[in-house]
């Protein structure tokens, strides 16, 4: 008969599990950093992953960016109109897209699309002994499976976020200028006045770190998969949930940290 655990024991167990999980993530991260120097570079695999992660995520990121820009513009317009400051929408939307909306929403969408695929693919390879087959042939699974995805994500994620910002702004322009009749010069003038390159860099640096989080957590779940098809399903779900939550939490601290280097300015 299973012993009943008290709340303190449950709390302690959860804490130990968390420490164990973080330790395991740290081990994978250190293996990845080691592979940067000791592993064999696999350029072809890396380009394949850039196509799958970067090129393959275009639609998701563009649609997310565009409709986020559009709806944020609409909501802001409805409220700002009461105060007669609707002409400033361009500046507000562009800063919000650069610093928060595009990095976070694109990050979450890529987590759902790419992170889930990584965890499922690597997890399936694990339970069907394909990873053991790699090892048996002297190929380190981190070199072959994780590093190409890691580098591809480092390259793709900042660019995807930049793309999301561009399409978000374009949608905002359409809604503001074509939809609500705000003069183009007012809209664009406020964008230029309130946004500078640091704001774009702010978002792209966030994207870089989000990329690390997505690859690390998703590949880790894949490599740790056990128990056949059920395990692959669980691992995939965990990858998306853990990576999404971590991304949101890290986003807050990154915002505080990056603001020290790229303070919110008044633009050019």
């Amino acid at each position: 008969m299973a012993m009943k655990r008290g709340p303190l024991q449950l709390l302690g167990r959860s804490f130990l599990d968390l420490v164990g999980y973080l330790g395991s993530l740290g081990m994978l991260l250190s293996e990845m950093l080691g592979a940067l120097f000791r592993g064999r570079p696999r350029v072809l695999l890396m380009f394949e992953q850039i196509v799958r992660i970067g090129y393959g995520s275009q639609t998701v990121v563009v649609v997310t960016g565009a409709f986020t820009g559009a709806v944020f513009t609409a909501q802001t317009y409805f409220k700002f109109k009461d105060f007669g400051i609707e002409s400033t929408i361009g500046g507000i939307v562009s800063v919000a897209l650069c610093r928060e909306l595009s990095p976070v929403l694109a990050g979450l969408m890529v987590t759902g699309r790419v992170g889930a695929a990584m965890a499922a693919e690597i997890g399936t390879m694990k339970v069907s002994e394909q990873i053991d087959a790699l090892r048996a042939m002297g190929v380190h699974p981190v070199d072959y499976l994780v590093m190409p995805r890691f580098i591809a994500m480092m390259v793709s994620m900042p660019l995807l976020i930049a793309e999301s910002i561009v399409f978000g702004l374009a949608a905002s322009w359409l809604v503001s200028v074509v939809g609500f009749g705000i003069p183009h010069a007012w809209f664009w003038g406020h964008v230029v006045e309130h946004t500078n390159l640091e704001d774009v860099a702010f978002g792209m640096i966030k994207g870089f770190f989000f990329g690390i989080i997505i690859v690390l957590i998703s590949c880790h779940q894949g490599l740790e998969t056990t128990d056949g098809a059920v395990g692959v399903g669980l691992g995939t779900t965990r990858a998306v949930v853990y990576a999404s939550l971590t991304l949101l939490i890290v986003n807050y601290f990154l915002t505080l940290l990056l603001t020290q280097f790229f303070p919110m300015g008044t633009g050019t």
Binding site: E129, A133, G138
Partner: peptide, 23 residues
């Protein structure tokens, strides 16, 4: 360790029970 095992493993051929081919 895993990387140091590479030369040993290169001398061994292994047929897995379910073949473990790369899909």
């Amino acid at each position: 360790d895993e990387r140091q095992l590479r030369p040993v493993r290169r001398r061994i051929g292994y047929l897995f029970q379910n073949a473990a081919l790369f899909d």
